[in-house]
């Protein structure tokens, strides 16, 4: 009895697996959530704090995050700032979409393999399209 049980396959296996859409959006939900928590809320506090401190502090914020006109390190951080801001909007749209997916899973719906995979992929399509639409609106209007 004990010997025959030993030969049985063990599942889930720690090493034998392949990526699926649900796994990908699950880890993306955690990564985007923590990115928004640290980088997103950090930037929000810098922005509102600078705005409350006065025109000079706000100009320093703009220079470091977007403009880079003062030269020096800001020329580099302004490029980084744009990447981070675009990344944060994508992270918000992705986290919101997978968050809604979780709310639906919480009521017990959407666990069929095909349905689950389809909606997982759609959250990523949604977040990429909305990020492009958002920045197209901001930069082109």
């Amino acid at each position: 009895m004990a010997q025959s049980r030993k030969a049985r396959p063990i599942s889930p296996h720690l090493q034998i697996w392949r990526w699926g859409p649900a796994m990908l959006v699950s880890i993306l939900h955690r990564i985007t959530g923590n990115g928004l928590a640290f980088a997103g809320l950090g930037l929000l506090l810098w922005w509102i704090g600078a705005l409350a401190s006065g025109e000079q502090a706000y100009q320093i914020f703009l220079d470091w995050v977007w403009l880079g006109t003062a030269g020096g390190v800001q020329a580099f951080t302004a490029i980084l700032g744009k990447v981070v801001l675009v990344g944060l909007t994508w992270a918000f749209f992705q986290h919101a979409a997978t968050g809604i997916r979780h709310l639906i899973l919480d009521i017990g719906a959407g666990y069929e393999l095909q349905t689950n995979a389809r909606w997982s992929i759609l959250t990523m399509v949604f977040s990429i399209l909305l990020t492009i639409a958002f920045w197209a609106f901001v930069l082109l209007r």
Partner: peptide, 24 residues
């Protein structure tokens, strides 16, 4: 958050500019 952050980013995108006076 769905309501609040959507309101925030849509509002920021709709601001005529992002100068100190406008934002404040």
């Amino acid at each position: 958050n769905l309501v609040l952050i959507t309101f925030l980013i849509v509002s920021l995108a709709l601001l005529p500019d992002h100068s100190f006076a406008t934002a404040r």
